[in-house]
Design a protein around this nucleic acid. Sequence first.
DNA 1: TTGTAAGCGTTATCAC
DNA 2: GTGATAACGCTTACAA
Lengths: 351, 351
Amino acid sequence: MRKQITMRDIARITGVSPKTVSRVVNNQGEISEVTRKRVQEAIETLGYSPNITARSLVQGRSNTIAVVAWGIEYYGPSRVVVGIERQADEYGYSLLLTLLRAKETDQKIRDTLKDLAARRVDGIVFAIPEFNDNRSWINEEVLNRLPPIVFLNMESRSGINIVSVDNKAGARLAVTHLLEQGRKKIATICGPLRWWEARQRLAGWKEVLDQAGFFTSGDVIAEGDWSAESGERAMRQLLESAPNIDAVFAANDQMALGALGVLHQRGIDVPDDIAVVGFDNVPDSAYFYPPLSTVDQPLLELGKVGVQKLNQMIATVRHDDDGMEKSTTLLMPKMIVRQSSYIDNLKKNSL
Amino acid sequence: MRKQITMRDIARITGVSPKTVSRVVNNQGEISEVTRKRVQEAIETLGYSPNITARSLVQGRSNTIAVVAWGIEYYGPSRVVVGIERQADEYGYSLLLTLLRAKETDQKIRDTLKDLAARRVDGIVFAIPEFNDNRSWINEEVLNRLPPIVFLNMESRSGINIVSVDNKAGARLAVTHLLEQGRKKIATICGPLRWWEARQRLAGWKEVLDQAGFFTSGDVIAEGDWSAESGERAMRQLLESAPNIDAVFAANDQMALGALGVLHQRGIDVPDDIAVVGFDNVPDSAYFYPPLSTVDQPLLELGKVGVQKLNQMIATVRHDDDGMEKSTTLLMPKMIVRQSSYIDNLKKNSL
DNA sequence: TTGTAAGCGTTATCAC
DNA sequence: GTGATAACGCTTACAA
């Protein structure tokens, strides 16, 4: 990586014009085999590498999209980023990764986005979970100054493009499954309720139980913070406030894991005494003790569909079809039944 | 994001030269308060955003570094990327993320790096684990055509900059701990031995046992593939080939988790009958049943130190001090003792 | 304190 | 098929 070799250098050496070198590099236009060969050889031997920055400048597009994400050290967010990267790669985009902390101010978020706009990324995937009022900065004026942007996992809303997993439906799956297993008193360890996803999962739980005519009073709800430790706390609280429960729906697998630990300590059998269902289907959940029933989210797909939608927006903007309809796409989770909630008929009969 | 507003536009409107606008934008040079205000206002109202691509072109630096990574859906790799992102952000670099699959060919790796060079990233963090011969492409000729590059977690080697966690030392910690707990027949579930890290961990296990004069024959070694499922298989194999073991060192927490599952099924008590130690300290490991003793790797730091080193390389190249010494930096893991390997004295006496 | 001119390395346009 | 010329939007020298 000494002095940069430019197109001009290649042109001078091979005795052609820079534009011809450009044509060879980009495989465009008709070129005689002779010159093409000669140019290509010069490129090889000199180790010429086209300066993509310059190309971006003149073409007005960077072939780069940015993802603004949070918490990629956790399973869910990192899966989503993987999906985003794969689809971006497929489309030929490079991926700029920007990580935010959980509690960023509005100002910080806007500065980050402004910076991405300055870097002239072609589009942005906003993959920060919705909580508190961290969507309050969204308005037409701000969006107009930004490249095309698609939001992941947030409440449906007009004027912007969104792709979300249907968390409420996922919770419904879990609780319905528990009802089908004959459970009657189903408590929940919900996530932090300042998170939209946590509220959705709680709402799904409530919806099914309300319809079935079961209680959903406060004593069968314990709020955690997604961590296993908070799951322990919540489980202890539930055993106190509602000792006669026969099932727990935890809003994520970590909290379910914490709950399992408490149940072991107390000698409460899972699933015979209390069934447990989680949410997320983290890989380890199949090896928890006992293997955890859970709700699988299509996280890879969430990322992919997000980029697909973004790519459409980018294409639309380019063609000046100022009219791409903004919409929300919902992705469906599915139920994974394992031993923490399932008693097979053989055993059931003998109980 | 309609037509791009340029410096010229701002200049024309405020009646100053483009260069003055540039000075305002970059806070450089002395400018009268009057013009600065005027320019700034114009920038605000027009929503001007400087084109960083153009700046990169003229300055010959992109203020971007790239990370080439693998498996960020797993805890370890994602932590490393987080560390990289943080340090990059601190230095003012943007981060380009490129993900590779496990089994990429040499050619694919080289193409990827070539592309990053074309994008004129200022440096590259190569965070692909070393396995098989996926380092065989490294040679001076290739490196010379690449921006500064630092390698993470690979065998020490002259001519390149490396930052690694000392996996062998980590394994030694684990096995030493088990010996101190009075264990005498310590088996291991090692990782796939085509991985450098797996070989290191196995070597650490062997080293300590050899020194202590204990057996390390094949029947106390079972190879897994890092997955919990392979941990199950390996544990079953060990119980068959060496039924009298009193401890297992698993080369990662997932495999330890699988092993725990098998031990439960067989009614073998952990840690009374068999102690188990893992490696990685994934967050969930504190909530396994029983809580897992493990070796904590400084993964965030690995990423950070990598970027620090890279930043030095970048600075060195710029100053044409062609002489930054290439070196390997080793980071030390630490032992985390939990209940899967620890019997406190009270209980010990009563056994 | 501010302006002018040149150039960064490409590609687009239009000509030959 | 190939080339000349003018951008792209900014910064660096150097002037004023």
